[in-house]
Write a protein that binds this DNA or RNA. Structure first.
Length: 562
RNA sequence: GCGCCCGUAGCUCAGCCGGAUAGAGCAACGGAUUUCUAAUCCGUGGGUCGCGUGUUCGAGUCACGCCGGGCGCACCA
């Protein structure tokens, strides 16, 4: 149980009603505060400070708090007893969860994210979905939920007519071996420009697509090879990013389910034919009254929404999922609103969430367009990040073996890219900038990694393995401040999933590293003696564990040296 | 036209269910190093939280209306 929930439960005992407690923003107001008295005073039309006095009389907290104080308009401030802080911190050393409580009701959650397109390079636009989705999956798992990550790759669609046409006529096998995606893109672009100029070629491309959809063996084989080649490239990226998927069922996996699904929706009256297309109307919903969800085109073709509905149905059935999280950009909000509404009519009762995020902008603050060709590829971003990190490592540690330098550069470079994304609110538009992404100053991954490295360095020099003391002896304010920060880890992690905000964790880790650096400056560890030394070593060990665990939840690794 | 999102320091951004004097980083300036790794720490300056009205003991946070920017709204995904 966290201190926050402990205080809340004591307040509930005293009030007979739930009340909320939060950590204070300012140490002058103690460690935790509640505004319960002011809320109660409002309904009872009483003086808030009077109510606060009454609450304090009934409240039992003297086993871990000093006498609560009434302040301001009627706040009740709690200041933790130092021995309690020391005891709780000591207990964290034996807790593999580091104070993070397991969910009371574990759920089966499917997380849908990344979803790159076959025969197209992954670019910066995929960063957010990929990194955010991975983090949310990691956090949900750590909280005890059962998570299935599923990469719904775009492996089916009209672009394959052109890809197949290009493959048959202009394929360069050497280029394909060297950089498959680049070659596939070249083939697509070449076919596309020819088709634009020549209606006959356009027709041929359409025919190739129809043949593929009809199961023509040659086209099917070409398609399978493009998917395999693309997946190889995706896996290289995911390997570099340290991201794993439990499933990668692409759009094509649901082809056979589309026609039956539409038929079923028609026969049970959920869908209807309108202007030749099959649609679901939401006439009872004012916001969607003018926005039907199309599930079959007038030419018989299926749409994005059709596949998503089939996928949704499959996931609920196969995994008996309680929740599905879609980590997809904000522009698709309407699409998911429609799909979720259709799902509700189909009687699907899962907790379906679209987790939207903002756009990636260029340096000119305009939207980075997908089609305009000049997208920065994800591979380039990750390579540049590692190169920049390598330069810094070389500057800092020229004598280090080259192999170790490269490993550290990877950990730092990839971490910096991830952290740049995760440390800001997901809805904010993101201005893509090498300098910003790869700056290693201030609130960045390297800052947090550096705190960890400093701790590891202490243990290397201490000459002995860490041995947990039976109790902690705290004397300096910086020690107690660090302890209180460490004890908040268990409060922060669950709150992330309230609104899918991993930036809260990033922010916490930054504050923790800051508290540690303050402690590091004020409290010599190895030069101290006796129980002060063992206690400080324990604080170092715990800080390292929380930093390591917290960063791991963000999908970021820590180096031993840097 | 309808809908969604964003607007906080010069720049980039935090601010969770409304809570006390709105916080960081970068940039600027000043200080700390015979180092437990200075990728660090301490300090200084910098704000009509887009504008207005309302609800409230209390509003950056909630409601409504504007302004500005972005995105989406029937046969692409």
């Amino acid at each position: 149980m966290t201190i926050q929930t402990l205080l809340e439960s004591r307040l509930r005992d005293a009030l007979g009603a739930p009340a909320q407690v939060s950590a204070t923003a300012d140490a002058r107001f103690g460690d935790y505060q509640t505004n319960a008295a002011m809320i109660l005073a409002k309904t009872r039309r009483m003086n808030p400070r009077q109510v606060a006095t009454e609450i304090i009389e009934k409240l039992q907290v003297d086993d871990f708090c000093q006498t609560p104080e009434i302040a301001g308009a009627g706040f009740i401030n709690f200041r933790l007893k130092p021995e309690f802080v020391a005891g709780q911190t000591r207990a964290l050393l034996d807790d593999p969860q580091l104070g993070v409580p397991k969910a009371e009701n574990p759920r089966k959650i499917i997380v849908d994210f990344s979803s790159p397109n076959v025969a197209k390079p992954m670019h910066v636009g995929h960063i957010r979905s990929t990194i955010l989705g991975d983090t949310l999956a990691r956090i949900a798992r750590f909280l005890g939920h059962e998570v299935v990550t599923d990469n719904h790759i775009g492996d089916w669609g009209t672009q394959f007519g052109k890809v197949i046409y290009g493959w048959k006529h202009f394929r360069d096998d050497v280029a394909l071996e060297r950089d498959a995606i680049q070659e596939l893109v070249r083939l697509y672009k070449h076919a596309n420009s020819l088709a634009d100029a020549d209606p006959a070629i356009m027709t041929t491309c359409r025919e190739e697509l129809v043949k593929l959809q009809a199961g023509d063996p040659e086209n099917l084989d070409i398609w399978k090879r493009t998917v395999a080649l693309s997946w190889r490239e995706f896996e290289a990226m995911y390997g570099l990013l340290g991201i794993h998927f439990d499933e990668h069922l692409g759009e094509s996996a649901y082809n056979d389910a589309l026609a039956p699904l539409v038929d079923k929706l028609l026969s049970c009256g959920i869908a209807e034919v309108s202007e030749g297309a099959v649609c679901v109307f939401f006439r009872d919903n004012p916001a969607l009254a003018e926005k039907p969800c199309l599930i079959r085109k007038s030419d018989g073709g299926f749409l994005y929404a059709t596949t998503d509905l089939a996928t949704l149905q499959y996931r609920i059935q196969r995994w008996n999922a309680d929740a599905i999280w879609y980590v997809v950009g904000a522009p698709q909000a309407l699409h998911f609103e429609q799909v979720f509404n259709v799902a509700a009519r189909m009687g699907i009762s899962g907790d379906l969430r679209h987790i939207p995020f903002g756009s990636i902008l260029g340096e000119d603050r305009k939207l980075m367009k997908t089609r305009s060709g000049e997208n920065v590829s994800l591979r380039d971003v990750l390579e540049e990040a590692q190169q920049r990190a390598l330069r810094l490592v070389e500057e800092k540690n020229p004598e280090m073996p080259a192999e170790e330098k490269a490993t550290i550069a990877q950990i730092i470079g990839i971490g910096a890219v991830k952290y740049a994304e995760l440390s800001q609110f997901r809805m904010s538009d993101y201005v893509f900038s090498w300098d910003k992404m790869l700056s290693f100053q201030g609130n960045t991954a390297p800052y947090l990694q550096n705190a960890y490295v400093r701790i590891r360095s202490i243990f290397r020099k201490s000459g002995s393995e860490f041995d947990a003391p039976t109790a902690l002896a705290l004397t300096e304010p910086a020690e107690e401040g660090l302890c209180k920060k460490l004890l908040q880890f268990g409060e922060i992690v669950p709150s992330i999933l309230d609104d899918f905000r991993p930036n809260l964790l990033a922010n916490y880790l930054y504050e923790l590293a800051n508290a540690f650096h303050g402690f590091y400056e004020a409290c010599p560890v190895l030069k101290s003696e006796g129980e002060t030394r063992t206690s400080r070593l324990a604080l170092c060990e715990l800080t390292a564990r929380v930093l390591q665990q917290g960063l791991e939840l963000l999908g970021i690794r820590v180096p031993e040296r840097m």
